[in-house]
């Protein structure tokens, strides 16, 4: 489902030159597979998700999602790819404050052609336990409820791949497990491949496949090695 090969990403530094943040020789996820990625803050986890989402482009390497080679796509092509194939759950939920819960979910299917399925939006809200909160605005929902709306939104366009960036980081401990269970069950039911990023071992330990970005990322290793020596 997802294949990364020879992926490199660096950012310009204020003093000149570029700072390598990612160098991943190879990484892949199979269709429907659920994988968790752990790593320290600043380790490049969010940058990796942005690359896979097509929000930014690599310096080198290949990102293939299904049959699509992202590095060959134009910006508009990557927009279409996100709208049609990708779900994204953000650490800070990123719900639009002026929209109701239902509208936020519908927004997730607004940018892909032929996917304006109001019934699915209601169904997803019911699935995350918020059928009776459809007309509530984010500010009228608890933090845990907001994250559940964000999950429903990420799933609304029937993606093939779901990226979840620290989905429990801003959720109260009581709701953390509910959020993880919800994501995993839904992905399993809809055969969606999942790449979940976390720095919480309690979360990571629940997954069969756990990858440490520090092991995958040669750029991180180089920086760590230089610091150690």
């Amino acid at each position: 489902m997802l294949n990364l090969n020879g992926l490199k990403k660096s950012f310009p530094q204020p003093g000149g030159g570029r700072l390598p943040v990612l160098e991943i020789p190879h990484f892949s996820i199979q269709p429907g597979e659920q994988s968790v990625l752990i790593g320290r803050s600043g380790g490049g986890k969010t940058t990796l998700l942005h690359l896979i989402a097509g929000l930014t482009t690599p310096d080198e390497g290949s990102i293939r999602v299904g049959d699509i080679e992202l590095t060959q796509l134009s910006e508009a092509g990557r927009d279409r790819y996100r709208a049609a194939m990708l779900g994204y759950v953000f650490q800070t939920f990123n719900l639009l404050p002026g929209f109701t819960a239902l509208e936020n979910v519908r927004l997730g299917m607004s940018f892909a052609s032929g996917r304006h399925d109001l019934g699915r939006a209601h169904e997803l809200l019911a699935r995350v336990g918020l059928a009776d909160r459809a007309d509530y605005r984010p500010s009228q929902l608890s933090v845990g409820q907001q994250q559940r709306v964000a999950i429903a939104r990420a799933l609304s366009s029937k993606p093939k791949l779901l990226l979840a960036d620290e989905p429990t980081a801003n959720v109260d401990p009581a709701s953390q497990q509910q959020v993880i269970d919800l994501i995993r069950e839904t992905c399993r039911d809809e055969q969606i491949a999942l790449l979940l990023v976390t720095h919480t071992m309690e979360v990571a330990d629940q997954f069969e496949r756990v990858e440490n970005l520090a092991d995958l990322n040669l750029a991180y290793q180089a920086v760590a090695g230089a610091t150690a020596s």
Partner: peptide, 14 residues
């Protein structure tokens, strides 16, 4: 800007 970024992340074109 954040709303626009969210919409772009959801697949909205420029």
């Amino acid at each position: 800007r954040r709303d626009i970024a969210v919409m772009r992340a959801l697949g909205a074109r420029r």
